[in-house]
Design a binder for these strands. Sequence first.
DNA 1: TTGTAGGCGTTATCAA
DNA 2: TTGATAACGCCTACAA
Lengths: 336, 336
Amino acid sequence: MQDVADRAQVSLKTVSRVINGEPGVAAATAARVKRSIADLGFRRNDLARSLRQGSTSATLGLVIEDVANPFYSAIAQAVESTARERGYLLITGSCEEDPERERELIRALVGRRVDALLLVPAGGERDHQWLEREVLGTTPVVFLDRPPHRIEADTVLLDNAGGARMAVEHLLASGHRRIAYVGDAPDLFTASERLAGYRAALTAAGLEADPRLIFQATPDGTAAPVQALLELPAEVRPTAIFTGNNRHTVGAVRALRGREHEVALVGFDDFELAEVLAMPTTVVRHDSFRMGAEAAGLAFARLDGSTAPPRRLTLETELVARGSGEIVPRSGEPRR
Amino acid sequence: MQDVADRAQVSLKTVSRVINGEPGVAAATAARVKRSIADLGFRRNDLARSLRQGSTSATLGLVIEDVANPFYSAIAQAVESTARERGYLLITGSCEEDPERERELIRALVGRRVDALLLVPAGGERDHQWLEREVLGTTPVVFLDRPPHRIEADTVLLDNAGGARMAVEHLLASGHRRIAYVGDAPDLFTASERLAGYRAALTAAGLEADPRLIFQATPDGTAAPVQALLELPAEVRPTAIFTGNNRHTVGAVRALRGREHEVALVGFDDFELAEVLAMPTTVVRHDSFRMGAEAAGLAFARLDGSTAPPRRLTLETELVARGSGEIVPRSGEPRR
DNA sequence: TTGTAGGCGTTATCAA
DNA sequence: TTGATAACGCCTACAA
């Protein structure tokens, strides 16, 4: 900046004024400075700028599991889009359910002084108090999709239990009594909530959950459980399957290929092309874009100075019937 | 940092030494400092650090069209993953084919002193010389998916023309003679290359491209052209369609729902569930993850000091036959 | 309308 | 083994 000033024969401060469009610079001077800036290819250093006290880095940090999962990329898109409206940039990191990686990421983000942190906490983490120490009330934190443990913070969740319950009730209404569950391990908040919703629906219908019909797998290991379910003896075999998230649903759709009519399927999370599959897939839909937008909104509310107690938003879900969830159980004798 | 120093009764510099693991600090002193850091919840400010060192912000900038498009999110994932190995973070921005937005983003990124810029340039831009001025040889720039205009820079592309040609040749080999093209407007590099490949294949087979069978639409406007193609009089109606990218293919699949057998379909870009659709979709596949990884590699090579002339990588494509591309044209009389 | 002084949080340099 | 001091590039406050 000093070089620019020298070249334009003004002081450094005048250059600063021109760059930031501050008033009180003679047109002629400003023009000289501008030419000088152009000649030298000068760019203001926003890092240095944000170093000044009270100044912001105009950057948000987002930690998710995996950008390549449509659920998370929708969130990233929404957060970025909201951030953009305020002139903020977004640093996104994927931690792939690795708490170690998550901690590293947060450290790096905080080190770079992001103005707020949006977080889908890695599964299995049962204590986020370290975060409190890490961030120490200096950086607003918003939790997405999964709530914090042992600390208070703004949170945006889905109605997981309600959505799951709706799915299972839908199947029960068609006459299904043997309904399987295939989802993530229950150390994931969403998974345990959805499993709870599944159980609640069964209980409310006077049924008991059959442990042989409950599978908790990693998202890339959906095929085996689904195969296993189809191979069960007729009197045990499920007539319907409820899958706990988009990865599991996609896995089930693959595993069921060619046998789509043998068993009803309802999945949590909508996914692209669900409606044009050989058997269009019935899903519990929600608005993941909105989840990101709301979370960003909460973050900006804090940045705008809100000191209200932490808020918890829960987004509703909706059942979208497309066919796979409306298959009725085979009537008559169980086949043998 | 001064607070930490006071509390540990050492100088600021000693705190700095401890934080950075520099040698020459007595174990006892270091312990005192560490406790002090923990007590105060001190975090080094990496912005200030990179300001002083004048060196690196350990951050990469990535500008794509849309994180929610699987093609780009795969790239983002790959870039982030490569960056992580080197301890770099990634700022990602979507510009949605808006050159204005692209310019803003780049400005913001450069202002924050990202160490390198990875860029999928917005369509229609025919001159990237402004970039040269903007970045002025200070920041390595790598182009992805689309080449730069009027400047030289490292670039990673797909074999667009080759892939398109392969697709059309595949259809020709099944006996198709009336093959339609539905893709983006040709101001997009990839679109014009793929259209060129389409034409080349026809020409090589001694056929002439029929302008009535060529549609250039926005990615969310695929339905209408596909409908229109199906409504053409029998003697003009195509027996096969080639779609120019994943969005168009998905659009075509939707539009063809229930009529999948009437026309063959090959799409550029693979997409999830293509293999389990009512009519499994034949595609030209490539490795978008690798594209991101290679681009990040080029960027880091520059950061490591490479002054080699700009490199241009072209990634190969591959035809994946799944069914939709193997439909043969109706034999006998054109129906009426 | 323009300029000077000081400081943001860090590290490099050199001295103690 | 430790510390004082001067940058890094910018902006705020105050003066001229």
